[in-house]
Design a protein around this nucleic acid. Structure first.
Length: 470
RNA sequence: GCUCCCUUCGUCUAGUGGUUAGGACACUGGCCUCUCACGCCGGUAACAGGGGUUCGAAUCCCCUAGGGAGCGCCA
């Protein structure tokens, strides 16, 4: 029994996107679940479009997600000699031939086929031609079987039958001698001992060609699993128009990798009514053959919800670390404030992303410019003057600036004025935070600190007086 | 145009001949409450359409429609 191997084989023509991340995750989970190995292969045979930056971006994305590979990364550009060797083997065995057709000839062929309402395909006219043609560097084509069927026994799509007569003789080497995609995947999957090919279902139509090639080479067939595409909310293929498609952009926007992974694993797959899966649970419960056959729509709201769940459940020190970074991006040094762990404990249930957590925590570190209009209008009115004045006086006398003490003070002032706590807490909150939403008023005051609290109450009292004067 | 894939609430899905068609996000009513959020309780909402098979179909078969992919000297 050979060791199980799965692989992720991106072409480095851009960043790691959501769809790629999901197929990578599925491959990774499959390998982890069965004690197999996960191989990373960079399909960079398209010299025009492949870039080193893209390779780095993909590696960075996988590292962030924690999808570590066991073998590779292998680069196809390092393997040209091997491809050449295989192509020669096919030529020697009479399973491939040189094709001298010109592009014009091929275009005409396609056009005519379309006119006859047929699928455009190469008619194999060079199979018999032996002589070369002046001025034409030939490509090499694989002699695809002309009759019979190829059955792809797919873990997700089931048995899919293709007629060989629908296929044509595909080009395996360009006129400059470089190998093409269908040849390189086949050779690599074979050489690298890939037992399970898990990839996007846009490759399903390539599979029968690859199987024919594999069989011509005498290679054992891998097991295939073609996972459906991810669509944007308009039902179209996911693209930049739909928001973030780059995995790294989710880090920028304050998502936890575990949350994104959890979202991705549940997109197209489920396990009873369970929504939250730790990595270990995913490994234990995920099975590619349980993945649904239909494309699914990416839903940013559910990702946000999941991210919030992960923020709430995470180790506070981990969140603190991330929060520091995002505060830094706002130009805030968390050392200039209270213990950041207190901030995390106060805010973790109130933010869906780490970016949002930083934003709603800004008031803790520096005075705000303007009041939220609606909040000021509702709470910074003349009726709030007395509560604020009394609070100011009481707070100024506090030595022991702890939440319990502060809580009691607010309560006392409310009782003294014979009003509900909200009549005191809300004006106070708007005065100190600038908005009508924040953690409990005691915690809020505690985090802001005595000096800033008194300063902001004074400012709010000014604001009320000015407003009354106008 | 041809080939292949797909079709349960707005979205992600459960469901494999007999269910009040279940859960989650979103939306929404309420509770909790100093606000927001979390949490808790409740609600709206789906088997694409049409034919069969069957005592009985979301489930099996056929057709139609709609969506997607592929048909490159791209991967």
């Amino acid at each position: 029994m050979p060791i199980m191997r799965t692989r992720f084989a991106p072409s480095p023509t851009g960043y790691l996107h959501i769809g790629g991340a999901r197929t990578a995750l599925y491959s990774w989970l499959h390998a982890r679940k069965h004690g197999g190995r996960f191989v990373l292969r960079i399909e960079d045979t398209d010299l025009e479009r492949s870039t080193a930056e893209s390779v780095n971006a993909i590696l960075e994305g996988m590292t962030w997600l924690g999808l570590e590979y066991d073998e590779g990364p292998f680069y196809q550009t390092d393997r040209f000699a091997r491809y050449k060797e295989v192509i020669q083997q096919l030529m020697d065995k009479g399973l491939a031939y040189r094709c001298y057709c010109t592009r014009e000839e091929l275009d005409a062929m396609r056009e005519e086929a379309m006119k006859r309402k047929e699928k455009p395909r190469y008619d194999g006219r060079c199979r018999m031609r032996n002589e070369s043609r002046e001025g034409v560097e030939p490509v090499i084509r694989f002699k695809n079987p002309t009759d019979g069927v190829v059955v792809v026994d797919d873990l997700i799509k089931g048995k899919v039958v293709f007629q060989n007569r629908e296929l044509d003789d595909l080009i395996i080497a360009r006129s400059d001698g470089t190998p093409t995609y269908n040849l390189t995947v086949v050779v690599d999957d074979w050489d690298m001992g890939i037992t399970h090919v898990i990839r996007g279902d846009d490759h399903l139509n390539n599979t029968p060609r690859q199987i024919n090639l594999l069989q011509a080479l005498g290679a054992e067939l891998p097991i295939y699993a073609h996972v459906p595409m991810i669509l944007g909310e308009d039902g179209k293929r996911l693209s930049k128009r739909h928001g973030a498609v780059s995995v790294m952009q989710y880090r920028e926007e304050g998502y936890l990798p575990e949350a994104l992974l959890n979202y991705l694993v549940r997109l197209g797959w489920s396990c009873g009514d369970q929504e939250i899966f730790s990595i270990d649970e995913m490994i234990e419960k995920f099975d590619v053959s349980d993945v649904g056959g239909a494309a699914s729509t990416f839903n940013p709201e559910k990702l946000l919800w999941l991210n919030q769940q992960y923020i709430i459940a995470a180790e506070p020190s981990v969140i603190a670390h991330h929060l520091s970074i995002h505060l830094g991006k706002l130009g805030i040094d968390p050392c200039d404030g209270p213990d950041i762990m207190d901030v995390v404990m106060a805010q973790k249930e109130r933010a869906q992303t780490l970016v949002e957590m930083a934003q709603i925590s800004e008031f803790i570190y520096r005075d705000f410019e303007n009041y939220d209009e609606a909040a000021a209008k509702k709470h910074l009115r003349p009726v709030a003057q007395a509560p604020l004045e009394q609070m100011r006086e009481a707070l100024a006398a506090v030595e022991d600036w702890r939440p319990e003490v502060l809580h009691q003070l607010v309560k006392d002032v409310a009782e003294a004025l014979d009003v509900k706590m909200g009549k005191v807490a809300q004006p106070l909150r708007v005065a100190v935070v600038g908005r009508a939403a924040s953690p409990g008023i005691d915690v809020t005051l505690h985090l802001v600190g005595k000096d800033a609290t008194l300063r902001r109450i004074d400012k709010a009292l000014d604001f009320i007086r000015q407003r009354a004067a106008n």
